[in-house]
Each structure stands twice: as C-alpha cells, then as structure tokens.
C-alpha cells in the first residue's frame, strides 16, 4: 500500500470554546475518493475548515499529517501552496475583486509567479470556464458577489481546476445545484481526479455520489466517524436516514469525555 496522503489521528477541534470534533480518525491514500456523510451539525464543515487551517478552529488534540508532514503549524496559505484545496460550503464574497484577478493571484502564489504567463493563464482560465459551463464574463465579475448558490459552487470547482490540488476537500458542493448543474460540476471534478490525488467528498445526500464514485464512505456523527464502508453504505444511509445513528451515537446518546 502506498503512503497515506492524509492521515488524521484522534482529531479534536473546538470552535469558540465548543468542542465539535471529538476523536476523528481517517486515512486517505493517493487515488482514493472518500465520502463523508453525516447529519447537519455533525461537524463536516468543521473538519473542512480545520484541514484548511482556519485560525478560529482550534485543534485541541490529535494530529493531521499530510504527505508525511505534521501540518498543525501551517497557515492556510502554506497549505494551499502545498496542494490542499477546500471547495467551501459557503464561499465568501470579495467585493471589488474580479474573479480573473483573484485567480491570477491565487495561481501565481500556488504555482510560483515565474511559472504563470498572463496570456497562457487567460487561455487556461477560459477553457476551464467553458468546461464548467461558466460564462466568460464571470472573469470580470467580483468574486462570489451576487452569484447564485449554483454559480458559487461552479466557481469553487473552477478554482480547483486552476489550482490543481493534491488533496481536494469538497464541502457540500452539491447543495444548491439543480440536477444538470450537479452533473456538470461532478464531471468537472472527475476530469480533475488523478491517480496521485486524494478527494474528500463531504455531503449530506447520496445523490452526488452517483456521479463522483467514492471508494470509501464514512459516517460522521457528533464529531466522530461512527461507521465506515464501501459505496453501498451511502445507499443504505439514504434508505435508513440518520435517525438511528443519531440515537446511538449522537451527542446526547453517548457520554462525552470532556476535553479528551
């Protein structure tokens, strides 16, 4: 077996003093697609933000190793430069900054300014936008400002296409997309997946997984992975719902070892 791309051990994360992740373990190897499913509030976005290095998400215990290195001390920009990418559940608007200029700055930082020629960048950007069904004039629009939910999600995947990460975390990329958009976005992701790359697909619903086929499915409840399996687990969950899992594993069910 190849070395893990990402190894999460006993991860505990708190937000504003509130413990959200409570001992999460996960290993992602190159070429693997892992789906993380779970009810609202179970900590999926907390995991995404913590992996990307959001300063408000404190790792109170455990460790995250990426390509063999402990990344606890890396700020978000360092993680991005090292190939970690997060497609946000709720992308933030940056008024006055055009998507084109923003992406040029991003690509320059991630690939190195010397490796990015403005003309080639532009060609690449236009091609990627076309693939994702994003109109060309979006390059001149301000980042996420006034974008519909679906447009934001497409633009997140556009950024992924331009930044070519080694580890992609897609946080509910399917929410807000109609079925056609879902297919286009999923195809966009599938085109980008390489045998060296790892993908974490975070979703509430099973339907995205019809398009992006995971190798492994994990169920996150109350800050822990309570069940793992193959793709069939997603279908089971869809049929069963989360209620039973919540009863057995929810925050109210099991006694929580405070701060552990």
């Amino acid at each position: 077996m190849s070395d893990p791309l990402l190894k999460i051990e006993n991860l505990h994360v708190a937000v504003e003093g509130k413990q959200i992740l409570r001992g999460l373990n996960l290993v992602v190897r190159p070429g693997e697609i892992h789906a993380i499913m779970g009810p609202n509030g179970s900590g999926k976005s907390t995991l995404s933000n913590a992996l990307m290095g959001h300063p408000n998400y404190q790792v109170t215990d455990g460790a995250v190793t990426y390509k063999g290195q402990e990344i606890q001390e890396w700020p978000a920009d360092e993680r991005a430069r090292q190939g970690i990418f997060l497609a946000f559940q709720y992308p933030t608007a940056i008024p006055g900054v055009s998507l084109g200029n923003f992406l040029l700055a991003a690509v320059r930082n991630v690939r190195g300014a010397a490796n990015v020629k403005p003309l080639e960048f532009r060609k690449e950007l236009m091609a990627c936008m076309k693939d994702l069904g994003i109109r060309q004039d979006f390059a001149g629009r301000y980042v996420n400002e006034g974008f519909s939910g679906g447009e934001k999600k497409r633009v997140e995947i556009l950024q992924m296409a331009m930044l070519k990460p080694s580890l992609a975390i897609l946080d509910e990329t399917d929410s807000g997309l109609d079925i056609d958009a879902l297919r286009i976005v999923a195809e966009g992701v599938n085109r980008q997946v390489t045998p060296e790359m790892g993908v974490l697909v975070i979703t509430h619903y099973q339907r995205l997984l019809d398009y992006i086929k995971p190798h492994f499915v994990h169920v996150l409840v109350a800050g822990r992975i309570v069940q793992s399996g193959g793709p069939e687990l997603a279908l089971e969950l869809e049929a069963r719902g989360y209620d039973e899992l919540l009863r057995t594993h929810g925050a109210d069910a099991a006694p929580v070892v405070a701060g552990a």
């Binding site: 990307m52 290095g53 991005a80 997060l86 940056i94 900054v97 930082n109 930044l163």
Partner: peptide, 20 residues
C-alpha cells in the same frame, strides 16, 4: 481566510480586500 486558502499571504489578502 478565503483568500489565504487560495495561496495568498495574509498581507496580500488584506491588500486585495482593500483594493477591492
């Protein structure tokens, strides 16, 4: 955070927000 998650340093991120 959004800009930093795309590789911009904190200073560059703030300057970009100011320019915007």
């Amino acid at each position: 955070f959004y800009l930093m998650s795309r590789g911009l340093s904190e200073d560059d991120a703030i300057t970009m927000i100011v320019n915007g």
